[in-house]
Design a protein around this nucleic acid. Structure first.
Lengths: 202, 202
DNA sequence: GAAGTTAAGTGGTCAGACCAGTGACCACTT
DNA sequence: AAGTGGTCACTGGTCTGACCACTTAACTTC
């Protein structure tokens, strides 16, 4: 009967994924139970479970014994953590990660200078900041959701390797540069503080 | 019996992972069968399978029906691809995709100018090129594997939306710029041909 | 009304069965 | 000697049914 060569749990994975999209499930929402999914999709419960494990690893869902399966807030992909311990073992990979992150952040700085609205600028000023919370605002200011996604992934990796803390004057001076929409100044600031620190630790 | 609160398939995942490390398994090597693993670890076969699914998703192993489970060549972590398809899912603005791709390609051009070896330069000259085969060489020349992965994902999506063909003089002139290691010239060329075309179609 | 009990539902796990490929082995043909 | 086809043991893929541990809510009981 199974004419297709594709494996059931792969099929099931995508079916559940599609189901999530079509139902427009939001973080916190509950998925049908494993038994119901198996029944509805016409597959065995074990296949459903193997598919759910994949979704779990991707950080899309979370299972709670006795309660059910729930949508997880997008962003904490624990798979990043896992990947880190697998992929980022070598110095080669770390070097690539840092280099890529720095390149992307420099781009974002440039874009942010062009696109940052006064409103967002004000909000940045009012907030307390760590390096990544600060830069998240920068990346958000680029108004490019895809770029933000990429940056988030890189940062997730990065956090598992390094802890980056900068003196408060960095944020203050950077904010001034942003306010002046001075791309050159912002980049200079970035190179002075961040890149220097990065090259040391490496 | 099960004093620990951690789930069996998680435990099993790490045990198999440890087993791989301790045995020093190399790409192509075969793992014990699912039944033997279940037996040796004292757990059910379904738990072993759920653990194997995770390892598979991480790109560490590959299962072949009738043959067994094998270590996978290091490097093709298809989860990056998967992750990409999640990041890019939905009707993300084409604008974001194009903008990001362009930004990354410009970066890669700059890096390539610094790092391109004469040998690679020669090979590029000899080859027939489409836009993406050409640029792949550029991105490879950055010697940053992570950047390459990101670019591949973006390009993958891009291909589903646009077909980008450029006149052959683009490749010739770009090659000359690369040979001269002239970053400015290469970027100028890129802006003249690619960005102009992109902004039209959009 | 508050506290304790019960029952239904859920994920977690296991064991066993069967299917569908693979590969080695062996008897048989040419 | 070389090729052919069948058999058989083993592998991953799948399904089923049975428990367990846990949560929740409805239902007692005081």
């Amino acid at each position: 009967m199974n004419m297709t060569t594709s494996k059931v749990y792969i099929e099931t994975f995508w079916q559940i994924h599609r189901m999530i999209e079509e139902a427009g499930l939001q973080p916190g929402d509950r998925l049908p139970s494993e038994r119901e999914l198996a029944d509805r999709l016409g597959v065995g419960r074990s296949s459903v479970r193997e598919a759910l494990r994949a979704l779990e690893l991707l950080g899309l869902i979370e299972t709670r014994r006795g309660e059910g399966t729930f949508m997880k807030p997008f962003g904490d992909h624990q798979l990043i953590q896992l990947l880190g311990s697998f992929i980022l073992q070598g110095n080669r990979e770390k070097r690539d990660l840092i280099e890529t992150k720095v390149l992307i952040e420099r781009i974002c700085l440039q874009l942010a200078c062009e696109r940052l609205t006064d409103e967002k600028l004000e909000r940045i000023k009012r907030e307390e900041h760590t390096y990544h919370s600060f830069f998240r605002r920068i990346v958000e200011a680029t108004d490019n959701y895809l770029l933000l996604r990429i940056w988030l992934v890189l940062t997730d990796f990065f956090k598992h390797i390094y802890t980056l803390t900068l003196p408060s004057e960095f944020y203050e001076q950077m904010w001034v540069a942003l306010q002046k929409r001075s791309c050159e100044e912002a980049i200079a600031m970035y190179e002075q503080y961040v890149m220097q620190k990065m090259s040391k630790e490496n």
